[in-house]
Nucleic acid binder design. Sequence first.
DNA 1: TGAGATATGTCAACAACACTGACTTATATC
DNA 2: GATATAAGTCAGTGTTGTTGACATATCTCA
Lengths: 181, 181
Amino acid sequence: MTRQQVPAAEIAEIPGQEALGVQGAASDDLIELLFFAYRDFVGDPDRILAEYGFGRAHHRVLHFVVRYPGLTIAELLDILRITKQSLNRVLKDLIEQGYIEQKTGTSDRRQRLLFCTNAGADLAADLTRVQTRRVARALADRAEQAGTAAMSAHDFLLAMIEPDERAAVCRLMARRARRAA
Amino acid sequence: MTRQQVPAAEIAEIPGQEALGVQGAASDDLIELLFFAYRDFVGDPDRILAEYGFGRAHHRVLHFVVRYPGLTIAELLDILRITKQSLNRVLKDLIEQGYIEQKTGTSDRRQRLLFCTNAGADLAADLTRVQTRRVARALADRAEQAGTAAMSAHDFLLAMIEPDERAAVCRLMARRARRAA
DNA sequence: TGAGATATGTCAACAACACTGACTTATATC
DNA sequence: GATATAAGTCAGTGTTGTTGACATATCTCA
């Protein structure tokens, strides 16, 4: 009831350079699906973060510090692509409230190596849980799709959208299909 | 040189519920790749928008109005998931500067139907071009990947990352693989 | 050892974009 | 004619990004 209404679902079957027009239309759909997928993807942790008085910026910092213990400030700045001042504001919150610790670098004592405390790891795990659930569910959805065929980017992004909202998104995108026909 | 360093590239081969641990790790990678992919994905249009004095919020409004002419305010609010006040701020800019027009609804005269002007369609096309280029390139990358195997979500998101940055992301993510080994 | 580069931290001001809450106007519906 | 709905607006606030300037500690190299 959902997939059939969406045009160009067979994107991944179109080889490289041929049929650029169709691939262009497929790309346009992916652009839109990426918006919807990301919208719902960040919505999950937002609800948890609000309980702690934190925002998405805190989440991003915590995420990368948990996953890559010993990260330096410079490395984190390069990953997040924000300014030192923006990073410092949220990092200060996380350190003061005991979620992240700094240790002076051993080989280079100018560096501040970042590590999570137990509290930080716990919070990060909470946040990761809801996001992992969504992604794992999206991957699992493939099984109920085209049988043994692998999941296309289109299918994955669609599956990342909140299930209750998926029909609405498909309905919206079907408006274009009708016009094109 | 890039792919081999990334762990769990065979995510899509793991059936539904079995090996949840591995799928969990795969999900974690996808979470991170989604961040990087989205970071670069929105970076492209940002540069164009800055020339017009517009931001991402303007882009989102313009995108949906171009793609779905006649959209109502209520529909747009439901899509974007922002407040009426937030929408109005950017919509006012776009209308005053001649990129979007409002027409009173015919069946319900309370509604304001949104349409793009030619200038709006031109700007939207400019913005779509850079994003379509990135997505089309990402889809095309599949051809040079696993031959006839379909593209996994992992491959797609990785291919969405700025090519020059891809190696750095892979290097970063390889740090985890080394620890796990 | 001393000059200059680098890593980090900080102050101040500002802009984009989201929020809440309260209220108005026009139109539709019953 | 009462009530609901679609849209617009005013005022205040918070998060997260920005620029620019500057301070401090440490490293590197001549």
